[in-house]
Design a protein around this nucleic acid. Structure first.
Lengths: 348, 348
DNA sequence: TAAAAGAAATTAAACGTTTAACTTATTATT
DNA sequence: AATAATAAGTTAAACGTTTAATTTCTTTTA
């Protein structure tokens, strides 16, 4: 950075004032700089390989064209489909408006500390997008939001459920288990297993409650044994399903919280000597690239993560351009029917 | 940003000079600020919800603690395994040293323009990592590197092949087709099909050449018909393999450039009435999460993308801390043997 | 031909933080 | 008691850019 040429040097080189350089560079069609001067500036910029210092510029204009991505988690950012699809949507939209993305991962321990650190480091951004990681305590999230609100800058929350404050938020309705389990119930299934990702944490609790709520309506009195955890891993999911099928030999369907886990479940079922969907139906989630390739092709719920990212970016863009209204966008997942679920005829 | 409190306000609030605030905040153990003053500053920071303005700070110190990620592509950033694994490694390492990541996607058309725009916007970063997307012209890449070199800042190139300049670079050796094809040849296969991603572009040319080079050594006189393109898509790969099997009914093996395409190939083979690996062997690439789940489990090449990201971050960190030596790190993919490849007995 | 309008440029302050150099007050050393 | 050392601050310039206000010069208009 020390070796970079400044606007002053460009100005000297071109024989004009720094102001003229700045004015021209920020609007090449300006009439405040003459044709000859323009040429000389252009030449000087090229010769000195001048690049505007964004920091100085941001300091002066009070605008950074940067959006801070706040992810209150210790987990690595880029290695899961969930985050990546969201980021992909956000990035496409924001970048077409010239905004850059800033990530400042934190080394702190608690989600509250993490958010504080990320905000501290990315102070100066024009706005923020707060991700939910699905694993943190609701009380923490509320504190996180308070922390962001203090910055008085536009922000939107993504997939953070049940925040009734007047803030911009994007929610995917089917982040709960409702659609998948309902679908299985509608198809006549009564012996259902639920395969979640990680145990512990608020998210798991929420999904568990949801599962019991829906199944109870159908007079099913399930307990915790029916809820399995596959850690979003193929091998863990395989093992847990294989042993669960011994505990619940009457199982007719499994609702999985990811396509990867669903594929693993299918393999476990086959290796247990049963067939999908004839003996046991399986439903996945995310409509991942691989979902057409399992045997049978996976019935799954497309969560439209990419669209959610786009929507979040849109809300932020609105807010950034002065729109004071707070909006809540609710996206609903779509059920993609393939061949891994079968109706069962009422025989009980 | 306008509403943010500055160091001056904190100073006034605490009854000290801005310098004292700055000195204390940057080193809480300093002896240049007294115990009482420290307390008053702490209190003021809390009350005014002060966050240091990174831009002003960076301007002053000439250090930003930000690394610019330069990806010379129009494609969305976060939606492919390749980029994500790399980013994940980079992020983990850099963040533990307090560095943030800056993405400034470009709307420009050519890779050269894109890099210029990204550099322009991220001028002020402490260093850069230049990604290869595998699709751009070598001449372009060289120009891109020249462009980055002009900034006189530390940078490392990631997966950009055959750059013999003295620059920091991380390469994964098996980005070519060598390992996969060699393995099939070693197992006795002579009727080989190659399933690449996108056609056109330097990368495809390079892989094609590589394929012919290796097979010629085994006196195989293949032509372009044996090279198929699956666009990294399940459906395209399925279709292209299905019809290729009609053109080359004697095929005994297929080398695929991704696990997704390999899984699709397996499906196409089965649907053509043949079995894997008994009739046709398939080898994939990337050791993706799904690779154990196909039937049979996929033999594949693990490219260690995550490690590559870590290494790139390490090189940059070295360079950032003043290490002038340029290093070249060469990673080699590992063959993961599962059940999709079978030796064929010499019968010809 | 004077006044007004327009074009092309400049000046100087501001953005918020850092830091070398300086000051003042207190304590320790001889 | 004089001197040196230390502690606890402060001052002011610098980082590179932007922009409102101003100046200077040229052209147009009545």
């Amino acid at each position: 950075m020390g070796s970079m040429s400044s606007i002053k040097e460009v100005a000297k080189h071109a024989g004009v004032s720094p102001a003229s350089v700045s004015i021209y560079l920020n609007n090449k069609n300006t009439k405040r700089v003459g044709t000859e001067a323009k040429k000389r500036i252009e030449k000087a910029v090229l010769e000195l390989n001048y690049h505007k210092n964004v920091f100085a510029s941001s300091l002066s204009t009070q605008k950074s064209k940067l959006i801070g991505i706040i992810i209150p988690t210790i987990l690595p950012l880029f290695n899961n489909d969930y985050t990546n699809a969201l980021l992909s949507g956000i990035q496409i939209r924001l970048s077409s408006f010239g905004y850059g993305l800033l990530f400042f991962p934190s080394s702190a321990k608690s989600s509250i500390e993490i958010v504080k650190e990320q905000l501290e480091k990315s102070a100066g951004c024009d706005g923020y997008i707060l991700f939910s990681t699905g694993f943190c305590d609701m009380k923490h999230i509320l504190k996180n939001i308070t922390e962001i609100e203090k910055t008085k800058k536009p922000f939107v929350t993504l997939n953070i459920p049940e925040v009734d404050a007047a803030i911009n938020q994007v929610l995917i309705k089917d982040l709960d288990t409702t659609t998948g389990v309902r679908y299985l119930l509608d198809k006549g299934h009564r012996e259902i297993l639920l395969l979640l990702g990680r145990s512990g944490g608020e998210h798991a609790k929420y999904l568990r409650k949801d599962f019991f709520r829906i199944t109870e309506k159908h007079d099913l009195n399930f307990n915790d044994d029916r809820i399995l955890y596959g850690n979003y891993s193929a091998i863990d999911s395989y093992n847990v399903i294989k042993s669960a099928l011994r505990v619940f030999p009457a199982t007719t369907s499994i609702c999985c919280m990811s396509d990867l886990m669903a594929s693993a479940a299918i393999k476990a079922i086959k290796d247990s000597g049963k067939s999908v969907p004839n003996d046991i139906s399986v439903i996945g989630r995310n409509n991942s690239l691989y979902s057409t390739l399992s045997e049978p092709a996976l019935t799954t719920i497309d969560l439209h993560m990419h669209e959610a990212g786009l929507s979040a970016a849109n809300l932020l863009l609105d807010s950034l351009s002065g729109d004071a209204a707070t909006k809540k966008i609710l996206l609903t997942g779509s059920l993609i029917e393939r061949n891994s679920v079968q109706s069962i005829t009422q025989e009980e």
